[in-house]
Design a protein around this nucleic acid. Structure first.
Lengths: 187, 187
DNA sequence: TTGCAAACTTACTTAGTAGTAAGTATATTT
DNA sequence: AAATATACTTACTACTAAGTAAGTTTGCAA
């Protein structure tokens, strides 16, 4: 794969996660990379191709992470902790997550991009639901709600907290994430 | 106040909550209201004026609601229930809330609009924190976290759930909101 | 009745957007 | 050496956005 292509995807993801899909333009990417507008169209004929590729890249990355945790034999607590670290890292970098960034722009996204975005959300939610359920069975987690509802609650909190962080100054993000984990502690 | 002005604000709010700030244009409003583009500029010289006015209107509406609940003597459980109803209504109407809609577009908003949006988030969070704290004192709510952290968790969940609803089909929104309330039940 | 202000419309500018067609340099294959 | 594919650039088109200046209608007040 071309290095320019990879740089475009990387920068595009950054721009989506900071400015948003509708607020960034091919110009933002081309001027940053020192290439011309049309060069991006060479790799991604339309903006929707770029958007879809970015989501696909993120799905792949997520699946690699969960596969990796599985093959290393992480227990459920450790898995959840690792998952939450994605968000604390995003928070440090003042970025949102892809789902939280593209979600608001669904009405202006192409069908293909929306389909991939839905697929991504479902994959994350399914993984989280399964992890919570098996962790509960093993006695690692304790919660009364249905695992899917609990997964939705946790995922919602994480996604929105990255957005609220820009609005409410005195958020202690570590405490926030800790509260999510501690809420699940069985004992 | 002019009726056209009010209609512009109302429609503008709708557009922000469905399409997003950057995705709607004065054209969307003017064609819907059967007026010309420039007519909107007559009331709101620039888009930032409209955005700020919409946020201010929402702050006012929120404060009227909480004042109303206070003067009617709602207990904390009833207050939280009423607050959550704002989100179930939004979900029914397939809209997001103002904070969740404008938050992602902060980088392209004017300083004034961002200031009002921050003020709005803070007002909501402060109210929620105070309600949770006094409800806990009275034994109406039970939770172990710090009230502000808990408020942030609940608010995040509500905001993001409206966004996730567009991505994950089989959400049972009622169960979701119920889980938030039941989690607080003391006894 | 004239004057004036409110509430617009007409007609425009400016700037930025995605996207395209055609050309060019460079490296690779045949 | 010739042909071809890769990775672009140049130079555009078509469109949409926000915003503006100047004119028009309408109702009310002096």
């Amino acid at each position: 794969m071309s290095i320019t292509r990879e740089k475009i995807i990387e920068l595009g993801e950054d721009l989506i996660r900071t400015k948003g899909y509708n607020a960034f333009s091919y110009q933002d990417i081309s001027s940053e990379l020192g290439i011309k507008n049309a060069a991006i169209h060479y790799y991604f004929p339309s903006k929707e191709n770029l958007g879809t590729s970015i989501v696909k890249t993120n799905i792949q990355r997520f699946e690699e992470m969960t596969d990796n945790m599985y093959s290393r034999g992480f227990d459920e607590w450790h898995q959840l902790e690792t998952f939450i670290k994605i968000y604390t890292k995003s928070h440090r970098e003042q970025k949102r997550c892809i789902v939280g960034s593209l979600g608001p722009d669904i009405p202006s996204l192409s069908n293909n991009t929306v389909a991939e975005l839905k697929r991504m959300s479902q994959i994350i939610l399914d993984w989280l639901t399964a992890t919570l359920a098996s962790g509960k069975e093993k006695g690692i987690f304790a919660f009364k709600e249905d695992p899917q509802i609990k997964a939705l609650l946790i995922l919602s909190s994480l996604i929105a907290s990255l957005q609220l962080a820009r609005l409410i100054d005195k958020i202690e993000y570590k405490s926030f994430c800790n509260a999510i984990l501690e809420d699940l502690r069985s004992e």
